[in-house]
Design a protein around this nucleic acid. Structure first.
Lengths: 181, 181
DNA sequence: GGTGGCATGTAAAAAGTTACATGATTTA
DNA sequence: TAAATCATGTAACTTTTTACATGCCACC
């Protein structure tokens, strides 16, 4: 059985309680988003495939005319989740356009670089704020490891923001000295 | 003109000198890989498209029967690169299966989690070693900002490895105390 | 003569995003 | 009654990876 990592995000989010596709998407955006995003275009088709494979089971919870299907993990689904969790982790991938631009920054006038670093700093600081907000809301109801990963996100983004600020200052200092000379 | 970010990786790597597709791939693996990867399957078709758009120009450098095409940035290509560099950075995305597994770790027995953290720590430590090796080789010939981004990669991975070790110890301590009680 | 590095490419599949389409219910 | 939120889904597209295919050249 070989599923995409996104399929395991779904199995994982169903491990404590049943959820609809919509709720899964909302949970992703509140929690795994910063290290594993997923869109409706993945979630709904994946839920159907997982049901065909017998890893989740959907049940109708429509209220009146509003349709709603809530999916629950089957015993096989739980076994598959545990099996996957027990395997060594694979993919680790970063795509950071900001670093890419910094990498090529010698093609721009030197004044541009401190601004790039400031922009990156601000982005990560904004992410910290967003994650802290989530932390405040989620602290009570979340599992321990969920909080731990959230804290990781907060602290890592803080570290990155500080790194940007340090380097920005260093560059700005260098530029002032060169102008003075 | 709207190109994929991978197209700009190519334009960027051609900014200081002409390179073949093969050399671009090698340069990516030595430099941008940890924050922006690219495969042959992207690079060769993208070079053709960029040539059609007039942003790069290929010239035959075959030696004997061995074919080789070296691409150089055209003036338009350089303008496009600078234009893109001047825009605010877009995409910033992480895909980390290790964090995902940690996030769901309450589905595993508690002894499993310190091992997951140790595995993640080791991966990041290995990345640090790889990047340091590149730094030693590249220090002389690389542009300032290339070194800066490389240093970022080293320091960030060090920070992550330390975070993993801190949390692993904290968990292990907690487990010993619970067993003793 | 074999291995490893240089070199170019394509086809197919997988993964993921975006935009669209539809409609119900709740709340201000 | 308008806006926000709940809810499901698909089609088209883009991006990226993987596997394969081919062959030269230098060195041991």
């Amino acid at each position: 059985m070989d599923l995409s990592a996104t399929a395991y995000v779904i199995l994982g989010l169903l491990r404590d309680r049943p959820r609809s596709g919509y709720e899964i998407k909302a949970a992703v955006d509140r929690s795994t988003r910063f290290f594993w995003a997923a869109s409706y275009g993945q979630i709904y088709p994946e839920l159907k495939r997982l049901e065909e494979l017998g890893l989740v089971r959907g049940s109708e919870r429509s209220q009146g005319r509003r349709s709603r299907t809530v999916y629950a993990l089957t015993p096989r689904g739980r076994r598959e989740l545990v099996r996957w969790l027990s395997e060594p982790a694979g993919l680790l991938e970063l795509r950071d356009e900001g670093l890419l631009k910094l990498f090529f920054a010698d093609a721009l006038p030197p004044e541009a670089t401190p601004a790039m670093l400031a922009a990156k700093r601000d982005r990560h600081a904004a992410t910290v704020e967003r994650l802290r907000e989530i932390e405040r809301q989620a602290a009570a109801e979340s599992a321990d490891f969920e909080c731990m990963v959230l804290r990781f996100g907060i602290e890592m983004n803080e570290w990155i923001a500080e790194w940007c600020e340090r380097e920005r200052r260093r560059l700005a200092r260098g530029q002032r000295q060169r102008r003075a000379a």
